[in-house]
Design a protein around this nucleic acid. Sequence first.
DNA 1: TCTTAATTTCGTTATATAACGAAATGAGAA
DNA 2: TTCTCATTTCGTTATATAACGAAATTAAGA
Lengths: 117, 117
Amino acid sequence: MDKTLEILKAISDRSRLRILMLLYIRPLCVCEIQDVMQITISTVSKHLSILKNVGLVSDEKDGKWVNYFLNKDTQDTILQQVVLMLPMWLSGDREIENDKMKVINVDRIQICSTNLA
Amino acid sequence: MDKTLEILKAISDRSRLRILMLLYIRPLCVCEIQDVMQITISTVSKHLSILKNVGLVSDEKDGKWVNYFLNKDTQDTILQQVVLMLPMWLSGDREIENDKMKVINVDRIQICSTNLA
DNA sequence: TCTTAATTTCGTTATATAACGAAATGAGAA
DNA sequence: TTCTCATTTCGTTATATAACGAAATTAAGA
């Protein structure tokens, strides 16, 4: 039950659901997610590590950024089903839709430069 | 997202997962669940109210007892899928299997009498 | 090598929630 | 109505966890 519980707890958080739904669109770096969600970078990073620990998300170096992406082709049955269900369970949600609109226009180069200014 | 989150949080708890899995077997009263799980009656009652609030469980008066039962024929799509998935996600779990063994021999009349002694 | 910049980790604070025991509730039986 | 007893509610305590800012880390590029 531990594994199942760990997965369920990982997806039982508003911020992490938002992050996951963003990752359905495309891989994102921490600062892009931060820009869309308007929460601290350290908080985003923490959420991503939780999602990574349960296997829902993986990461990959890309220049000076770290790309986080949804683990769509996981071998784990529970994770497979979770990845399949979440978009259905959250379809039409306002907050999610709003996030998705925002992420389209997000450019990591601009964001990271802007953060310094 | 609120509704989805509420359901996810309801099933992201070890005690509530154990309770749900017991209710797959048959309707149970609070004291029967208490006897199997060895936690306080008030705690069991609280968990059941959470499960009831999200629609996973319903209750029904039966003499001096209240029977709680799994809402297997819910109209809610998310709940339907949760009810379908949980037994798969928890199949073979030791703690759950142990609970199931215990609940077979549970008799509410004996328990409630015994509790007083 | 040194600097820069994205990310992670750490320490703290605030909030949420699980569990308990005691008291209140409420329905059936006398 | 009064008593009994299963259940719920309340108040408290302990633990878990989300969020933040600052400091540490780490890798890329000069």
